[in-house]
């Protein structure tokens, strides 16, 4: 059982991960880093679910767990596809800088 005051801390941690991920998305120009940021973002969301699922009022909720498991697998897939895109982009244009890629489009 997770005490309520600790829940707040975990929610804060989840928010922190989310903000970190967003910040990375805003600041980075590297496609690989973008993928990393997305993964962190997703982790933040997962943590949110699990933290709520662990609170005494809600009880341990298997649905939340199964959703998160599904999402983790999807997250893995996202990473795989995103990385393959990055590799392809690199093979095609020789760069993984999204600003440069955008310029190539024009």
């Amino acid at each position: 059982m997770l005490p309520l005051n600790l829940l707040w801390w975990y929610l804060g941690a989840a928010a922190a991960l989310y903000v970190i991920g967003l910040y990375a998305l805003v600041s980075t120009r590297n496609m690989i880093k973008t993928v990393i940021a997305i993964e962190i973002l997703i982790d933040g969301a997962h943590l949110n679910f699990i933290a709520f699922a662990a609170t005494p009022t809600a009880g341990i909720d298997p649905i939340a767990h199964s959703i998160v498991i599904t999402s983790i697998i999807i997250g893995g897939c996202i990473a795989a596809i995103a990385l393959s895109l990055a590799i392809n982009a690199y093979k095609h244009y020789g760069t993984i800088d999204i600003k440069k890629l955008r310029r190539l489009r024009e």
Partner: peptide
């Protein structure tokens, strides 16, 4: 996740991520 009583999630997290 382990601490938060979610062992299966933890396992998947470790394996996949």
């Amino acid at each position: 996740y382990f601490i938060l009583n979610a062992p299966y999630v933890a396992v998947f997290q470790l394996v996949i991520y």
